[in-house]
Lab assay of single mutants.
Amino acid sequence: NKFNKEMRNAYWEIALLPNLNNQQKRAFIRSLYDDPSQSANLLAEAKKLNDAQA
């Protein structure tokens, strides 16, 4: 399933972002599970926040 693969990839990328705190990571990951079709958008948002907090 395409969404499962995208979701799994996004999950690990988000989990490993160095500048997000655990609460932020959990919120993004919860959103991934709520709507796997938004994986790419959620990952992009997480990366933006990660960069902003660098």
Rank of each mutant, 00 (worst) to 15 (best):
N1H: 04
N1I: 06
N1D: 13
N1S: 02
F3S: 11
F3A: 07
F3L: 13
F3I: 09
F3Q: 09
N4Q: 07
K5F: 02
E6K: 04
M7W: 14
M7S: 04
M7V: 09
M7Q: 10
R8F: 13
R8D: 04
R8K: 05
R8L: 11
R8T: 09
N9Y: 15
N9K: 15
A10D: 01
A10L: 06
A10F: 12
A10E: 01
Y11S: 08
Y11L: 15
Y11C: 08
Y11G: 04
W12C: 04
E13F: 15
E13W: 15
E13M: 15
I14E: 00
A15K: 15
A15T: 15
A15F: 15
A15C: 05
L16S: 13
L16T: 09
L17E: 01
P18V: 09
N19L: 09
N19H: 09
L20Y: 00
L20S: 00
N21E: 09
N22C: 04
Q23L: 10
Q23K: 07
Q24S: 04
K25I: 07
K25P: 00
K25W: 03
K25F: 12
R26S: 06
A27E: 05
A27R: 10
A27T: 12
A27M: 08
F28N: 00
F28S: 01
F28R: 01
I29Q: 13
I29L: 11
R30P: 00
R30T: 04
R30G: 03
S31L: 07
S31D: 04
S31R: 15
L32I: 06
L32Q: 01
L32E: 00
Y33E: 03
Y33T: 05
Y33V: 09
D34R: 14
D34S: 11
D34Q: 09
D34M: 14
D35L: 08
P36G: 05
P36W: 09
S37K: 13
S37F: 08
Q38D: 09
Q38F: 06
Q38V: 08
Q38T: 06
Q38K: 11
Q38A: 08
Q38G: 08
N41W: 14
N41K: 13
N41V: 07
N41S: 11
N41A: 12
L42W: 12
L42D: 01
L42E: 01
L42A: 05
L42T: 08
L43S: 07
L43V: 14
A44S: 12
A44T: 09
E45A: 09
E45D: 13
E45C: 08
A46I: 02
A46G: 02
K47M: 05
K48T: 09
L49K: 08
L49T: 11
N50I: 01
D51N: 12
D51R: 14
D51K: 12
D51G: 11
D51L: 14
A52P: 03
Q53T: 07
A54Y: 11
A54N: 08
